[in-house]
Design a protein around this nucleic acid. Structure first.
Length: 394
DNA sequence: TCTGGGGTCCTTAATCTA
DNA sequence: TCTGTAGATTAAGGACCC
C-alpha cells in the first residue's frame, strides 16, 4: 500500500466495548460469561444503558425498554448504573490515550478522538499505533476497546465500529471510498430511524447508492442542511480537527415518574429540586442562562416544551424555578397527568456568582420575587404590569 | 413494546428590528 | 410617519447521539 501524503491528517477513534457492563464485570469477576444488563430497575420505566455481549446474543441492546429486556432475559444480572465509578474509569482511559498523543478529545464517557497525525512515521505504522493504544487502555483499566483510524473523524468513527468488540481497523486515505461504498447509510452521522426510512423510500440503502445522487436532489428531498451533509459524507468528507471548544450550550435536569402524576405539588417540588441542581451546576461552572426551558411529557409520550428568554442571565435556583414553574402553569397542560417534567437553562453566558449577586440589591430582589408570586398566582393584571416581550430576569 | 437522561443541531413559523 | 423587506432572534417541535 502506498504511503499517504504528508499533508493528510490521521485521526483515531477509541470506543470502549460495552463500557458500563464491562466495568461491572471487571469489578465483580463472578459475572464473567454471564449476560449483564446495566440500566433501569426491571419493572420501572426506563431503558438499558449498556449490556454485555452475552446479553446481546439474546437480542438485547442499549436504549431498549427495560421491560422488553426483562421479557427476553428474565434470569440474568440487572445492575443499576454507577456513574461515579464509570467516570473514574473513564478518566483512566483518557489518561492512557494521552500517553499515545497529546491531542485527545473525549466525546463521551466511553469514547474519544485522538489526533495521531505523523505518529506512524516514528513508531512502525498506523496498525502499530492502534495496537499500542489498545494495550495502553487495557494496562490502565483491564478493559478492551475498539479502535478505528482514518483520515478524518467520520472514517475513524465508522472504522472503530467496524469490528467490535476488541477491534482495530485502519482506513488509509486512498481506501476511503471503497471502504464506505458497501456500508449501510445508517453508519453515517445524522442518519437514524426517520432519515433512514426516508432514504430507503428513495431507494438509497448503501453509501454507494447515496453517492450516485446529486447534492441538489438530496437537499430537495431531505432539507438543505441534511442534504449537504449526506453528500459530503458519501464521499468520505468530514472534519479532521481534534480538540474542539467543548463548551456546553445548555444545562438541564429531567425526571420521568414511575406513574403519571396528577398532583401539582409533586410536579412543583420536582421542578424545585431540578432547578436547584441546574443552578448549582451553572454556578460551579461559572455560567448563567438567559433562557429558561421547561419540558413536559404527558401520557402517550406526547412531549411539549416551553421557553422564555430574558435580558439578563441567571444561575440562581429560585429564579430558575420561578420562571420554569410559571412556564409550566401557562403551558395549558396543567390539568393533564405528567409522565416527565424537566427544567433547564440555555443561551449560556460566562458569569461569576459575584457579578450575578451584585446586579441587584436585596430589597429589589425581594420586591421582584413578591411581584412574581402575585403574577404567577393571579396573572399580570393583578399588579398592573404591561407585557413587554422581554423582561429582565432580575 | 413502550420508550431514561442529558445533550446537540435542524426546521419552521412568528416576531422584532434596522 | 408609513410601508416594505431582509435578516436576526425567539419559540416550539423533533431527530439524533451516547
Amino acid at each position: 500500500m502506498a504511503e499517504e501524503p504528508l499533508s493528510s491528517h490521521m485521526i483515531m477513534h477509541v470506543d470502549m466495548d460495552a463500557f458500563f457492563a464491562a466495568v461491572e464485570k471487571h469489578d465483580n469477576p463472578d459475572l464473567e460469561g454471564r449476560p449483564v444488563i446495566v440500566g433501569a430497575r426491571p419493572g420501572s420505566r426506563g431503558v438499558v444503558a449498556a449490556c454485555s455481549y452475552e446479553a446481546r446474543r439474546f437480542g438485547l441492546h442499549s436504549a431498549m425498554p427495560i421491560s422488553t429486556a426483562y421479557k427476553l432475559c428474565p434470569h440474568e444480572v440487572y445492575i443499576r448504573p454507577r456513574m461515579k465509578r464509570y467516570a473514574h474509569v473513564s478518566r483512566r482511559v483518557m489518561a492512557a490515550l494521552a500517553m499515545v498523543s497529546p491531542h485527545v478529545e473525549p466525546t463521551s464517557i466511553d469514547e474519544a478522538f485522538v489526533d495521531v497525525t505523523g505518529l506512524d512515521r516514528h513508531s512502525g505504522g498506523l496498525e502499530e499505533t492502534g495496537r499500542r493504544t489498545k494495550d495502553a487502555v487495557f494496562k490502565e483499566t483491564g478493559l478492551t476497546c475498539s479502535v478505528g483510524i482514518g483520515p478524518n473523524r467520520l472514517i475513524a468513527k465508522i472504522a472503530s465500529d467496524f469490528e467490535k468488540p476488541d477491534g482495530l481497523t485502519v482506513v488509509r486515505p486512498g481506501a476511503v471510498l471503497d471502504f464506505l461504498a458497501p456500508l449501510s447509510v445508517s453508519v453515517l452521522r445524522g442518519v437514524g430511524k426517520k432519515l433512514g426510512q426516508q432514504l430507503e423510500g428513495a431507494g438509497i440503502r448503501t453509501v454507494l447508492d447515496l453517492r450516485k445522487r446529486t447534492e441538489p436532489e438530496l437537499a430537495r428531498r431531505f432539507g438543505a442542511a441534511a442534504g449537504k451533509k449526506l453528500f459530503a459524507q458519501a464521499r468520505g468528507i468530514a472534519s479532521d480537527l481534534v480538540g474542539g471548544t467543548g463548551t456546553r450550550k445548555s444545562i438541564s435536569k429531567e425526571t420521568t415518574f414511575n406513574e403519571d402524576v396528577r398532583d401539582r405539588d409533586v410536579v412543583r417540588e420536582t421542578m424545585r429540586s431540578q432547578a436547584t441542581a441546574v443552578g448549582s451546576i451553572a454556578r460551579r461552572e461559572g455560567t448563567a442562562g438567559r433562557t429558561v426551558n421547561v419540558k413536559i411529557r404527558l401520557a402517550g409520550f406526547e412531549t411539549h416544551t416551553r421557553s422564555r428568554t430574558f435580558e439578563k442571565a441567571t444561575n440562581l435556583d429560585g429564579e430558575i424555578f420561578r420562571q420554569g414553574w410559571t412556564l409550566y402553569q401557562k403551558s395549558g397542560f396543567t390539568n393533564r397527568p405528567v409522565r416527565l417534567i424537566g427544567i433547564g437553562i440555555s443561551n449560556l453566558e460566562k458569569k461569576s456568582q459575584l457579578e450575578l449577586f451584585s446586579e441587584k440589591s436585596d430589597k429589589e430582589r425581594r420586591l421582584a420575587e413578591a411581584k412574581d408570586r402575585i403574577v404567577a398566582r393571579f396573572g399580570k393584571n393583578a399588579v398592573g404590569l404591561r407585557s413587554p416581550r422581554r423582561d429582565p430576569l432580575t
